[in-house]
């Protein structure tokens, strides 16, 4: 390369692209308007920044679907292999607590949507924080109920592992069911906890009056995440609590 090509060849197109001088019409938004304080340097404008963040969250949720997808596949396979055991094991879960939690989560999706709306329409920080905190309380309620359900399973040694005890007819299949139950609901609960953590930050930001019509992307993408976590539960609830309850139910 010592004898390389110091310049581009003189034949051919003069330039591959035209890098235009400053002040060209496409650059005006950065010079004509003052920078929004939340605009990061590598974005051209707030619209591009918001679109990037939202698309980023959607793509992330796609990865989450694949993440839970592996568990759903395992559930499908083992349910097909052990239909009776899954019915029996499922009957030992309290569908009432599950249904209560479903209602709680659906309601929390509503309050989350209202939180996004209140930021989007530049409502007072009190309103924004109220909806966020309400959502957090509902989320915490869900987790509290989950703790009750888990501790009941621990008390009866229905937790898979060497000490698993099952007094029904299908101990082996029930153990697989509860392995999947704890993996799926545990992972879901972990997502809830992460969601509560994010919402704490968002609520503090809202209290500091950072969100308004021009800038509310963080609230919006937190909302997307929270709705996703709710939807996962909407699938988990019937699969784990409801299917096959007619058989040997309590």
């Amino acid at each position: 390369m010592s004898d390389g090509y110091p310049q581009a060849p003189s034949v051919g197109l003069p330039g591959r692209v035209s890098i235009q001088a400053p002040g060209n019409p496409h650059d005006e938004q950065s010079s004509a308007h003052p920078h929004h304080p939340k605009l990061q340097h590598h974005f051209d404008d707030m619209g591009q920044q918001a679109e990037a963040s939202t698309l980023g969250m959607w793509v992330f949720l796609v990865t989450e679907i694949m993440f839970f997808g592996g568990l759903f596949l395992a559930y499908l396979v083992y349910r097909t292999q052990n239909p009776m055991a899954f019915q029996e094991a499922s009957a030992h879960l309290s569908w009432k607590l599950g249904a209560f939690n479903t209602a709680v989560l659906i309601f929390s999706s509503l309050t989350m949507a209202l939180a996004v709306r209140s930021a989007q329409t530049s409502e007072s920080r009190g309103t924004q924080v109220f909806w966020l905190v309400t959502t957090m309380i509902l989320g915490a309620t869900f987790l509290g109920v989950k703790v009750i359900e888990y501790s009941e399973k621990f008390a009866h040694n229905n937790v898979p592992g060497p000490n698993f005890v099952w007094d029904g007819q299908y101990p082996a299949g029930a153990e697989i069911f509860y392995s999947l139950y704890f993996c799926m609901t545990g992972l879901h609960a972990l997502h809830m906890v992460i969601g509560l953590g994010i919402m704490t930050v968002i609520a503090i930001m809202a209290w500091r009056r950072q969100f308004n019509t021009e800038y509310f992307t963080p609230v919006e993408i937190t909302g997307l995440y929270w709705h996703f976590v709710d939807i996962v539960w909407i699938f988990l609830f019937p699969l784990l609590y409801l299917i096959g309850r007619h058989y040997g139910g309590h």
């Binding site: 052990n82 239909p83 009776m84 055991a85 007819q169 299908y170 082996a172 299949g173 058989y247």
Partner: peptide, 25 residues
């Protein structure tokens, strides 16, 4: 089978019936 479905009695089913007798009655 109890609870619906059928199964062909082959090596795999007999094996399963011995080690996991409750799986498919």
């Amino acid at each position: 089978l109890q609870g619906g479905g059928t199964v062909t009695v082959d090596e795999a089913y007999i094996r399963e019936s011995i080690v996991l007798p409750q799986a498919k009655v």
